[in-house]
Nucleic acid binder design. Sequence first.
DNA 1: GCCACCTAGTGTACAAAATACACTAAATGA
DNA 2: TCATTTAGTGTATTTTGTACACTAGGTGGC
Lengths: 246, 246
Amino acid sequence: MKNLNTYFKSAFTVDNVIFGFDESDLKILLIKRQEEPYNNHWGLPGYFVLPDEDLNTAARRVLKQLAGIDNVFLEQVKSFGAVDRHPVGRVITVAYYSLVKIADFNPTPDNDVAKEVRWFSVSDISALDLAFDHEEMINVCFQTLKRQVRIRPVGFELLPPKFTLTELQHLYEAILETDLDKRNFRKKILSMNLLIDLEEMQEGVAHRPAKLYKFDSDKYEEFLQDGFSFEVKESKRKEPKPSLSN
Amino acid sequence: MKNLNTYFKSAFTVDNVIFGFDESDLKILLIKRQEEPYNNHWGLPGYFVLPDEDLNTAARRVLKQLAGIDNVFLEQVKSFGAVDRHPVGRVITVAYYSLVKIADFNPTPDNDVAKEVRWFSVSDISALDLAFDHEEMINVCFQTLKRQVRIRPVGFELLPPKFTLTELQHLYEAILETDLDKRNFRKKILSMNLLIDLEEMQEGVAHRPAKLYKFDSDKYEEFLQDGFSFEVKESKRKEPKPSLSN
DNA sequence: GCCACCTAGTGTACAAAATACACTAAATGA
DNA sequence: TCATTTAGTGTATTTTGTACACTAGGTGGC
């Protein structure tokens, strides 16, 4: 066994993959770095964990400091620790993912780490040449979101308080990257009793206005506990299942 | 922003939660520590990550060194980083979980970190007063296993090459902590075409011998890719689902 | 050799959930 | 008033899940 001092020479950071949803488009919040390494590159809002700070606390603090976002869903996803992932030294990072309502925040870099903060469509991100291994982290978190969307009512976190069923469907389509059947989707969603019909109509649209709904927080809590299944299937007939053997 | 040196004073470790299955019993491999802190306590096989070592590499190395286990399924689960979780300094640990065939290894502590290595039934572990936050880590990994068992054919990793359907069912029952209906379980499992009937019989049992099966690795690979659903339901009628609203 | 014991192995009817699919309704604005 | 756009709805069919109880085929004791 080596001297313990050998080991106490590394650092860790937290990085947040923040998802938002806006007009049929799934987005991620990025910052334009203004310090080395990767000065001027876009990257995830992340920073070092303080010596006396828990991981979750650090993730929330950094999110608040770098993007002005707080009080949101935030959950640890995975740690990344390739030896050479950080040019300055050995730095492991813990990736968090977060779901926010875009309209709730006006992200401004109030800190000298970032010179700009902006929402990017998920589909545009691969063109950006992100800092560090942030692109890989985003991919992993997106996969996590795709998995979670089936077992947790993510709309709660990503949609404004009042929304239409079509908006909710678009959200699912954006996350799952597939088309859903309108009637089946509605049947399924309504059958969960998770939505409250506000008996209000959409306004200012040049077509038949849709009914507005909100989520029923009590039901939501119940369902979170029970780990209910929120499966939503796509509209195209799937491959025939591995056929029965007998 | 602080001087970077402030941050480069921490260490990280990996800890492995190793599941095995043996005669209807789900087990976890623990070591009896022979160094401070927590000398003489049982705990997970884990150790510091070397300065020039990737996380996954470290997890495999430690597993090999401390328990003589290699070439197994091993996957990162979560990082634990409470400020005071390690008495010696700031140490974040990355938890891995692993599935092994108990008969494949004869775990012996070939290193001076552990004075003993032993399989414990999951149900006996809460009585042990484990080192660090290892009990919490085990709970999290057990939850992960429960989730994974539904979407990945874990029997592959935990059962010997030849097994009976009853053994497979017992495995699922142990992981899910529930009873399953024999006929429905068999119907479901066989319908996936994941098993190959070896046309051999169990031997040396004092009752009607069961047929032996093995897993079909080709099908397994396919299914891993497609992320197929491996749901197996319990035998008691479930709570009525949240009732349809209309 | 037969019987007691033990686990293996099997099928069916019913209920619930998933899926495919197309037309009418209600608003705007030209 | 009509062209355009999106909202909203129901049913028949298929697939999947679930409940449930008896016979089959070995061993070992007597």
